[in-house]
């Protein structure tokens, strides 16, 4: 119970601070953010968009970890955990895509411009979609668990190409791209202490939120399975 209250306070603080703290050219007080050239007020999305994108990958990673566990032990609980994580990942992936597109409309002038980062989040969306299509095409429970585990591992192997390699070797508009000169690698040196602190608090808050959602999700799925078995 105590950590739920802690999470509530953390997320509330991050939301309020992230939206209301002013951006000024030379920060003098602890509640002022520095001005990043080329981003301006748009920079504030980092507190909400980056955590969703981060959770998209974390959820996928968790799903892969439990897929590997399933293939080792053939315990159906692991498959349920992996599936719940994939469902949450899909939600966060859609959130990251939509918030990113809205931000791009104001920062770059169009909702979608096939920037390498946009391509990679789109690929993740496709992977999640393919995973659910595969699950619905196999009827036998064990077979479905095995095939979707294998697919999520093979898909996870391609993720480093999208997330770490493509955006760095291809030219793009996203902060942190190969030819980015004005907005720079934002995380490294353009953010000052308080901005970094709130950014990392937001990451922590969203990660705990994900963990909580995942826990509730797989527990409820387990009970559903149990009830199904009792009445059939």
């Amino acid at each position: 119970m105590i950590w739920k209250i802690f999470l509530f306070l953390l997320i509330s603080f991050v939301s309020i601070a992230g939206i209301t703290f002013p951006i000024v050219a030379t920060p003098a007080h602890w509640y002022e953010f520095p001005l990043i050239m080329g981003l301006g007020e748009n920079a504030k999305i980092i507190f909400f968009h980056v955590p969703t994108a981060w959770l998209t990958v974390v959820a996928f990673f968790m799903s892969t970890v439990y897929s590997i566990k399933y293939l080792r032990n053939k315990d159906i609980v692991d498959d349920i955990k992996a599936h719940t994580s994939a469902q949450l990942g899909m939600i966060f992936c859609i959130l990251a895509t939509v918030t990113g597109a809205v931000w791009a409309k104001f920062a770059w002038g169009s909702y979608w411009s096939w920037d390498p980062r946009q391509t990679s989040i789109f690929a993740l969306l496709l992977i999640y979609g393919a995973l659910f299509a595969l699950r619905s095409a196999v009827e036998v429970e064990e077979k479905r668990a095995t095939l979707s585990s294998v697919y999520s591992i093979i898909a996870f192997v391609t993720v480093p190409f999208f997330i770490f390699i493509m955006p760095r070797i291809m030219r793009g508009l996203h902060p942190g791209s190969a030819d980015d000169t004005n907005a720079g690698p934002v995380v490294n040196f353009k953010m000052n202490g308080n901005m970094l602190l709130i950014f990392f608090l937001s990451l922590i808050g969203f990660t705990i939120l994900y963990y909580w959602m995942w826990y509730v999700g797989y527990k409820s799925m387990l009970y559903k399975e149990k009830l199904n078995k009792q009445y059939h």
Partner: peptide, 20 residues
Amino acid sequence: AKASSKGTLYPVLSFPILLP
């Protein structure tokens, strides 16, 4: 080969893997 609706599923599953 182990799933149903093989024809449509094949490009759906392959595309994200082949995309990079």
